[in-house]
Simulated scan of single mutants.
Amino acid sequence: MEQDDITARLSRLNGWTLSSDGRAITRRFDFKGFAKAVEMANLAAWLGNKRGHHPDVAFGWGYCQVSFTTHDAGGLTEADFACAARLDELVA
């Protein structure tokens, strides 16, 4: 995916950032407590299974960080941005 396309798509997402190597997009969700962070991790996992495009998820007390990349492509594809947008819709 071209850099201009990545920049344009990223600008349409809420709170997502591009990794330093330009191969992934990440969003950190902050919560009060552990249970909500676990729920968010489960939601991201459910979405990944539903779409066949699995994110990297890290969570702990008060946060859940979700990253999308297309490992087979060695970087970002339409699937990453579509999953990020859908996750945003689910938590809105």
Score class of each variant (00 low, 15 high):
1 M>K: 10
1 M>Y: 09
2 E>D: 15
3 Q>N: 12
4 D>P: 09
5 D>F: 08
5 D>R: 15
5 D>Q: 14
6 I>S: 00
7 T>N: 11
7 T>A: 12
8 A>I: 10
8 A>V: 10
9 R>L: 11
9 R>S: 08
12 R>L: 12
16 W>P: 01
16 W>Y: 03
17 T>M: 06
17 T>Y: 03
18 L>F: 02
18 L>M: 06
19 S>V: 05
19 S>M: 05
21 D>M: 05
21 D>Y: 05
22 G>Y: 08
23 R>A: 11
24 A>Q: 10
24 A>F: 07
25 I>A: 04
25 I>K: 06
26 T>R: 12
26 T>S: 14
26 T>G: 09
27 R>Y: 11
27 R>F: 01
28 R>W: 02
29 F>G: 03
30 D>H: 13
31 F>M: 07
33 G>C: 03
34 F>C: 05
35 A>D: 13
36 K>A: 15
36 K>W: 11
38 V>L: 15
40 M>R: 00
40 M>P: 01
41 A>T: 05
41 A>M: 04
41 A>P: 04
42 N>D: 13
43 L>A: 12
43 L>D: 07
43 L>M: 13
45 A>Y: 08
46 W>F: 14
47 L>F: 03
47 L>R: 01
48 G>H: 02
49 N>P: 03
51 R>M: 12
52 G>T: 06
52 G>W: 03
53 H>P: 09
53 H>W: 05
53 H>R: 08
54 H>R: 08
54 H>F: 03
55 P>R: 05
56 D>N: 09
60 G>F: 06
60 G>D: 14
61 W>M: 13
63 Y>K: 00
63 Y>M: 01
64 C>G: 00
65 Q>A: 11
65 Q>G: 04
65 Q>E: 15
68 F>R: 03
68 F>G: 00
69 T>A: 13
69 T>Q: 10
70 T>R: 11
70 T>H: 11
71 H>V: 12
71 H>M: 07
71 H>D: 07
71 H>C: 08
73 A>W: 07
74 G>N: 11
75 G>N: 01
75 G>R: 02
75 G>L: 00
75 G>C: 01
75 G>Q: 02
76 L>W: 06
77 T>W: 00
77 T>P: 00
78 E>M: 04
78 E>S: 03
78 E>G: 00
79 A>S: 12
80 D>M: 09
82 A>Q: 15
83 C>D: 10
85 A>G: 15
85 A>D: 12
85 A>K: 10
87 L>H: 05
87 L>A: 04
87 L>K: 07
88 D>L: 10
90 L>N: 09
91 V>D: 13
92 A>F: 11
